[in-house]
Structures are given as C-alpha cells and as structure tokens.
C-alpha cells in the first residue's frame, strides 16, 4: 500500500467530509424549498399574529393582544369545539365505513376492481362538484327529501344545511362521503399484507368472520390504521373547503370551524393579524397532536 496509516486516516477523514458535504448539497434544494414555503412563512405568521395588520397597511406590533382577544372570543371557542366534533366524527364514521368496506372487499374476487373504483371516485372529484351534488340532493324544495314528501313519505324533508342543529353534521357527512373511499383503498392495501396463514389458522380454530376481523385483520393493519387516525386528526384542524362551500360556517356560526373563521377574519374584515393568531393556535394544536403520537411511539407503541 502506498499510504502510511496516518495518511490513510487523513484520506478516510477527507472522504467522510466529502460524503457529508455531498449529502448536504443533495439536501440543500429540499431544505431551501422548505425554508421558503414553510419555515419563513411560519415565522412570519408568528410575527404577524403579534401585530394589528389589515394585510395592506403597516403592521403595528401589539404583543399578545390578539391572543388575549382569542381567549375572550366566543366564536373562536365555538369554532374550536366544532373542530373537535369534526375530528371525532371523522375518527369514527368514515374509519368504521372504510374498515368495513375494505374487509368486505378483501373477501371477494369478482368485480372487486369495479367496487374499488366506485368507492374511490368521490375522492378524486373536486370538492366544488361534490358539494353542488349534495346541495342539490338535499335541497329543501327539489331534493330527495322533498320528493319523498311528495310521495307521502314524511320526515326526510329537513333543511340539512339550513338548520343550526344539523349543518355541521350535514357538511361532515358530505365530506366523509368523499373521503371514506380513500380509506377503503388504504385499508385494503394493508389487509393484503396480512399473512394468509393467520386467517387459515383462525378458520381452523373456528373463528367467525367478525372474530377474524377483530383478532387478525385489525392487529395486522394496526400501523396503517393508527397512521390514518393520526392523519385524520391533523387534517381536521385546517378543515375548510366543504364547510366554506356548503355553509360558509353558518347558519349563526353553527358550522363555523377555525379555518372558515380565519378566512373571514382575513378577507372580509381585513384583520390579518388576528387571523394569523388563529392560525398560530391551529399550528400549535397540530403540533400537540403530533407530539402525542411521537411520545406514544417512544414508549413502544406500534405506530
């Protein structure tokens, strides 16, 4: 060998540094992109949340005044409570439907692709189209309920989006209608990863279909299941499009969520500083959710 041992160390060290440098060079574009579209706007938002700013004039630094105002703003708390309801709704109804749909689909061979496509189609249709579709179907004058009432079948001609008692759940239903097909496909893909031997053993042991689902399928897809639950919780914080399109947070704030409240503050009232404060609290809530999952994972949960 031409090198002494010291030289070899030097070469190895230089090689390692080159490797580290090249790693950073390859990472640089992504880091730069994230700096531009995430870090800088996020830090800017934190600053804006501490200003009184219309989005057009010179920002005036007001410290934590916007956050103090949030604490005493009943509509903010009402919106937050609706986000909680929204999250619970999506953690239960679409997940249950997705699991059931995927489990039933996993058991059939013929026309499975047809069902998969049928379930998935609403997910790829634009929210504007989906909302118009359901607005028409649930229209109080010419929707399904009105038609049934004309046939003498009463009780279904309710004003789903017009009643403060049903507006939030009505919008959540429409959103989940478009979303559950996505969960079906995700869960179905996970179910195919479960070892078939486990099902065969369960059958030999006399397990019913539900018992196979409960004791084989669910544990088998647990990482996927928990991941979707995490994503649902995170996605529920900035929920916006279906609510904005169907009720715009009304009537009387009955379907207001943080996203629509923030939007109205910014674009109708020109209170961008206050809107940013709402946004910061949304980011903190999301961070809190992620932190819980990280802690659970570190404690050994399989998620």
């Amino acid at each position: 060998m031409a090198f002494k041992i010291d030289s070899r160390v030097g070469v190895t060290s230089a090689y390692r540094w080159r490797q580290i440098l090249s790693n950073y060079i390859f990472l640089a574009p992504v880091v730069a992109l994230n700096l531009i579209v995430i870090v800088i706007p996020s830090l800017t938002s934190v600053y804006i949340s501490m200003t009184k700013w219309s989005g057009l004039n010179q920002p005036e630094f007001v410290g934590l005044a916007n956050f103090e105002r949030l604490i005493n703003d009943p509509i903010y708390w009402k919106s937050l409570s609706h986000n909680v309801i929204w999250t619970i709704f999506f953690l239960t109804i679409p997940v249950a439907m997705g699991l059931t749909g995927a489990f039933l689909l996993s058991g059939i061979k013929r026309f499975q692709m047809v069902y998969r496509v049928a379930f998935f189609i609403p997910y790829v249709i634009a929210s504007v189209v989906n909302t118009e579709l359901w607005r028409t179907l649930l229209h109080p004058r010419h929707g399904i309920g009105a038609w049934l009432a004309k046939q003498g079948i009463e009780g279904f001609d309710i004003r789903v989006f017009g009643s403060k008692h049903t507006a939030l759940y009505g919008v959540a239903f429409v959103d989940s209608w478009h979303f559950w097909g996505f969960l079906v496909i995700v869960y179905l893909a996970a179910m195919y990863q479960v070892q078939p031997d486990l099902y065969e053993v369960a059958i030999l042991e006399g397990a019913s279909r539900f018992q196979r689902f409960r004791h084989v399928t669910v544990p088998g897809i647990r990482p996927t299941l928990v991941f979707t639950l995490l994503m649902i919780m995170i996605w529920s914080v900035p929920a916006f499009d279906y609510i904005y399109l169907l009720t715009d947070g009304g009537p009387a704030h009955a379907s207001e969520v943080l996203g629509t409240y923030l939007y109205n503050m910014s674009f109708f009232r020109f209170e961008v500083g206050y809107a940013a404060a709402i946004g910061v609290t949304m980011a903190l809530i999301t961070a809190f959710i992620v932190a819980i999952f990280v802690i659970l994972r570190r404690r050994g949960w399989e998620i």
Binding site: H139, P140, R141, R159, F161, G162, S163, A167, T247, G250, P251
Partner: peptide
C-alpha cells in the same frame, strides 16, 4: 318560507 329555508335557498 322559514328561517331554515332562508339559509337553504
């Protein structure tokens, strides 16, 4: 027709 109709129309 009603407040709920007003919000629905």
């Amino acid at each position: 027709g009603s407040l709920e109709d007003y919000y629905s129309l």
